Simulated assay, not measured.
Amino acid sequence: MEMNFLAVLVAALSSFVVGFVWYNPKVFGTIWMNEIGMTEEKAKQGNMAKIFGLTFVFAFMLAFMMPTLVIHQIGALQLAGGNEKDEAFLAYMQVHGHMFRSFGHGALHGFFASLFIVVPTIATNCLFEQKSFKYAAITSGYWIVVMTLMGAIICGWK
């Protein structure tokens, strides 16, 4: 069972598509900018190559780890010490095969991973940084959508 590099790449790139829509001024972009005190002028001063380049690296890192969160067969392989020829793993795969390898199942696991990992992390930071509820909701909502989509892509793409 090898990792599908193309699925990971597409999952990472999906974060840009979601971000383009999510942070559009007609969706949450204007509210988000107001909440963090960002202006158009200040935004234009940022190093876009650095920002988008590192954003892709971070999205890729997240997508790279998603299989362990959304694909049950990865857990079975891990229990077999990563040995695809392990008799117990082969028996598991013979009985279960690619059961639960679907876009919907991956989306479900991606959603719960974001809800129980990302949201508490963002919320804790927002509490200490005294950020508004709006900011926390917009930022958390983005990551919920991204990780749900990433989970769907990673798990469903065979």
Rank of each mutant, 00 (worst) to 15 (best):
I122N: 00
L108P: 02
P120N: 12
F111I: 10
G110N: 09
C126G: 04
F128L: 13
F133Q: 14
Q130E: 13
A107K: 00
K131G: 06
A113D: 09
L127T: 09
F112V: 06
G141V: 01
F116P: 01
Y142S: 08
W143A: 03
T121V: 14
Y135M: 09
L115C: 04
A136H: 04
C126P: 02
V146A: 11
L127E: 06
T121F: 15
S140N: 13
I138F: 05
E129I: 11
I144L: 14
V119W: 00
C126F: 05
C126E: 01
A123P: 03
T121H: 14
S114F: 03
I122V: 10
I122R: 00
Y142I: 10
L108Y: 11
S132R: 15
G141M: 02
S114D: 05
G141R: 03
V146E: 01
V145W: 02
L127V: 12
F116V: 07
P120K: 09
L108G: 04
I122Y: 00
V118S: 08
S132I: 12
C126Y: 03
G141H: 00
Y142T: 07
V146P: 00
F116G: 05
Y135S: 07
Q130M: 11
N125A: 07
G110H: 05
A136G: 10
L108D: 00
I138H: 02
K131Y: 09
A113F: 14
F112G: 01
A107E: 01
H109N: 12
W143R: 02
G141P: 00
W143D: 01
A136T: 13
A113P: 02
T124Q: 08
S140T: 11
F133A: 12
A123R: 01
V118M: 12
G141D: 01
G110Y: 02
F111D: 06
V145M: 06
N125V: 04
F111A: 11
T139C: 08
A107L: 05
V146F: 09
I144F: 04
G110R: 02
L127H: 08
Y135Q: 11
L127A: 10
K134R: 13
Y135H: 12
K134I: 06
F116C: 10
V118T: 13
I117H: 13
V119A: 02
I122Q: 00
H109W: 15
M147K: 00
L127R: 08
G110S: 13
H109K: 12
V119P: 01
S132H: 15
G110V: 07
F111W: 10
A113C: 13
F128T: 07
N125P: 03
P120I: 09
F112H: 04
K131R: 15
H109S: 11
A113Y: 08
S140H: 08
A107D: 02
Y135E: 13
P120A: 10
T124C: 11
T124V: 12
W143T: 03
I117E: 13
S114N: 08
H109L: 14
I117P: 03
A137Q: 06
T121Q: 15
S140C: 15
F133N: 14
S132M: 14
P120T: 09
V118L: 11
V146I: 12
Y135P: 01
K131S: 11
I138V: 11
